[in-house]
């Protein structure tokens, strides 16, 4: 039962990533692309957590936590650069 649910979860997150890629390439605005990248980070964290459940090892959660932090900092840096023309003033 878990295996079937995991397969569904992997498929759902993979399809979600493909949809995000479509929005990333399509745009039309820069804000859309930042939003698509932010959503891709969220979906990749989901994939990492699912892989952690499947492998049964707890080591992947550091990767998930790091990705959550780096994704947030990246989004804020993109937005800051567009808003102020500089990241750290």
């Amino acid at each position: 039962m878990i295996a079937g649910a995991l397969a569904f979860g992997f498929a759902a997150f993979g399809l979600a990533l493909a949809l995000n890629l479509w929005r990333l390439f399509r745009g039309p605005g820069v804000a859309d692309r930042i939003l698509a990248l932010d959503t891709m980070v969220i979906n990749v964290i989901g994939l990492i957590v699912l892989a952690g459940i499947e492998s049964g090892s707890g080591t992947s959660f550091e990767a998930a936590l790091l990705l959550a932090m780096v994704g947030f900092v990246g989004t804020v840096a993109y937005a800051k650069f567009l808003l102020r023309g500089d990241i750290i003033e």
Binding site: F8, G9, A12, N20, L35, L50
Partner: peptide, 20 residues
């Protein structure tokens, strides 16, 4: 656990579908 995984996958898919 299986129900939570299916629920989570569905919500993530709906969110990205909304993005498109």
């Amino acid at each position: 656990v299986a129900a939570l995984i299916v629920l989570g996958g569905s919500f993530a898919l709906v969110g990205s579908w909304g993005l498109v």
